[in-house]
Design a protein around this nucleic acid. Sequence first.
DNA 1: TTCGTAGTTTGACGGATGTCGTAGTACGGT
DNA 2: ACCGTACTACGACATCCGTCAAACTACGAA
Lengths: 117, 117
Amino acid sequence: MTTATNPRALPHPAREEIRLEAVLHALADPVRLLIVRTLAAADVELNCSAIELPVTKSTSTHHFRVLRESGVIRQTYQGTAKMTALRHDDLDALFPGLLPTVLTAAGHQSARDTVRG
Amino acid sequence: MTTATNPRALPHPAREEIRLEAVLHALADPVRLLIVRTLAAADVELNCSAIELPVTKSTSTHHFRVLRESGVIRQTYQGTAKMTALRHDDLDALFPGLLPTVLTAAGHQSARDTVRG
DNA sequence: TTCGTAGTTTGACGGATGTCGTAGTACGGT
DNA sequence: ACCGTACTACGACATCCGTCAAACTACGAA
């Protein structure tokens, strides 16, 4: 290391700072909803690049940041990789059942879309 | 009447056309969330002007349209008044529990905000 | 028919958003 | 020390969003 003591810290909102409007806005984008669904399905921390997205890497970075700054995900560095996890505890404490309900709704819609072309 | 047979028809999406992303986006705005909460609390069809909003009338019209076009509310004319109701049935059929969960979350957040200034 | 009330439409404007490409930074391995 | 991988930062761009004011339309009442 050269100068930094805590090389790459990522700003996260504290639990009390998480706003419902921001969470809903974060989940309202198809790419971000895909990220969240993938994280929920994996049920473990995931590397950013483990989630295939139909956008470039800079756009991915943008979406991950929106999710992080709204309080939906938590991100930490592990070497060059950046691990991402859903903030299930905080979200469930603030907005009980919201995330599971949205995930179920997304699953239903996805199933309907698949059936009807 | 002069020419029109069905004077003022308002376009609503059919149940199958309602998209989760659009619903979440509609709910992600503070003014619109206030509208939805007020409708849910009233539990009956409401006149537009019965909901006091911190914006001008043209902005209100805009927000009501976003809610209607996303499938969250249904609007019908009754004379000069425009009645508005939540599309509880359709939303619950498509995304079970989503609307109640969001409303509960909004209530919790509002209570927290009130307590902590 | 005239007026007032209720809501719409249009145009404008500033700010946010989603997207990309290019250049840059941080870390691990050779 | 060097290189490659992984992700970030910045700038650009088109679009969308929330807001307003002003002009307009529709209906009911006097």
